[in-house]
Simulated assay, not measured.
Amino acid sequence: MRKKWKYYIDRMLTFALIGILLPLFVTIICQRMRLEEVIYGTYDAMTEAAEREGGEELEEQLPLILAKEIRADAEDAALKAQCVIARTTLYDAAARGEEQPAAFSEEELRQALGETYEKTMERLETCVEETSGQVLSWNGGYAYAAYHAISAGSTRDMSRSAEAAVPYLPAVECPADLTAEGTLSVIYCEETDILKRCGEHFAEADVSAVSEIQVTERDAAGYVQQVMLGEYVCTGEAFREAMGWNSACFTITQMGENVRIVTRGLGHGYGLSQNEARAMAQEGTSYEEILQYFFPGTTLVTADQIK
C-alpha cells in the first residue's frame, strides 16, 4: 500500500515539474531562436517593436477616421466595410510615408455628437475590434480602397482606365442610389460666376462664354470624362471640383443670362457607394460580401500578411 502511494506521489511530482519547467523550456527555445536571428543579422528588435507599436497606434486612430468618413448611424455591416476601407488606406499611407486619412479630433467629435458621444465611440470601437486588423489586398499589396457617398446609379469602371487601370474596380449597379436623398442636385447660377471660377482654376483657358464649355466625353455611368474650355482640355473630375459641384455626372444648360447645372450622385463614383452599402446591409448582406461586391478579386487579409 505504501509503495502504491509512493508511486502516485512520484507521478504527481513529475507532472508538477513538467508544468513548471515546460513554459521555461519554451521560453529558452524562443530566446535561443531570437538570439540566432540577432547573431546572423536577420532580427531587428527595433523594427519589430516599431511595427507592433505603430500598428496599435494606427488602430487607435481608426474610430475617429471612421466617424469622419461615414455616418455613425450606418448599419453594422456598412460600418465594418468602411472600417476595412479606412484601415487599408491608413496602413498603406503609413507604409508609404504619405498623408494619412483625415480624422476628427476627440474634442471635435464630442462637440458634434454631444450626449451620444460615448455610445457612438463604443460602437465605432466595436467595429474596429470586430474587423480585427483586416485590410483589402491585391497581388499581395494594399488595394486602392476608393469610396464615395452616392453613385449616379452605377459605380464608375476603373478596370480599363487609360490613366490608371485598376482591375478590381469595375462598374457595379447601385439601384438604391437612383432614389437616394441628395443624389439629384439642381443649381442655377449666373454665367459670370462660372466664367470667374474658370479664370481662377484654369488660367490657361481663355473662355468668355459658357457656350465655349463643352463636354466631349462621358463614361458608361454618365460621368464626364473630358471637358473642353475653348481649346483647353481638362478632366470632368477636375472641372467639377473647381466648380464645387457634387459630382462629375453633370449637365450644363444655358438659360439666357443664367445657367442650370444638374448633377447626379455625390462624390467621384469610384469604388464603394456608401448609400448602396447601407441598402445591402439592411437586406442582411455581410460586410465581407459588400466588400467583394464593390472590390471583386481583392482578398480580405490581416495587415501583417501584406508584403
Score class of each variant (00 low, 15 high):
Q61C: 11
D44M: 11
L17Q: 05
Y43A: 09
I29N: 00
E37R: 07
Y43I: 03
G19Q: 06
T27I: 02
I9R: 10
M33F: 04
R52Y: 14
Y40W: 08
L64P: 13
M33P: 00
I9V: 13
L64E: 09
G19S: 13
V38A: 08
I29R: 00
G41D: 07
Y40A: 04
M33Y: 01
L58S: 08
M33T: 04
P23N: 01
Q61M: 15
L64T: 12
E57P: 03
L24D: 00
L64C: 12
T27S: 00
G41M: 07
E57K: 11
Q31Y: 04
G55E: 03
C30S: 07
V26D: 00
I28V: 12
M12C: 14
E36Y: 09
A16E: 07
E53S: 06
L35V: 06
F25Y: 09
A16S: 15
Q31M: 10
Q61R: 15
F25H: 03
R34Q: 12
L24W: 01
I28P: 00
E56R: 13
G41Y: 05
L21S: 05
V26H: 01
V26A: 02
I18P: 10
A49H: 05
I9M: 03
I18L: 15
E36V: 14
I39R: 10
Q61G: 05
F25D: 01
E57T: 13
G54I: 07
E37D: 10
T47C: 01
E57R: 14
L64M: 15
P23F: 00
T42H: 02
G54Q: 13
L17H: 02
L35G: 06
G41T: 10
I39C: 02
E60I: 04
G54K: 12
L24Q: 02
E36D: 08
D44S: 12
I39P: 05
D10S: 14
D44Q: 11
A49V: 02
D10Y: 11
T42N: 04
C30Q: 04
T42C: 01
E57D: 09
L21N: 02
R52Q: 15
I18T: 12
T42Y: 02
F15C: 13
T27M: 01
T14H: 10
M46L: 03
A45R: 09
G19V: 11
L22W: 08
L13P: 08
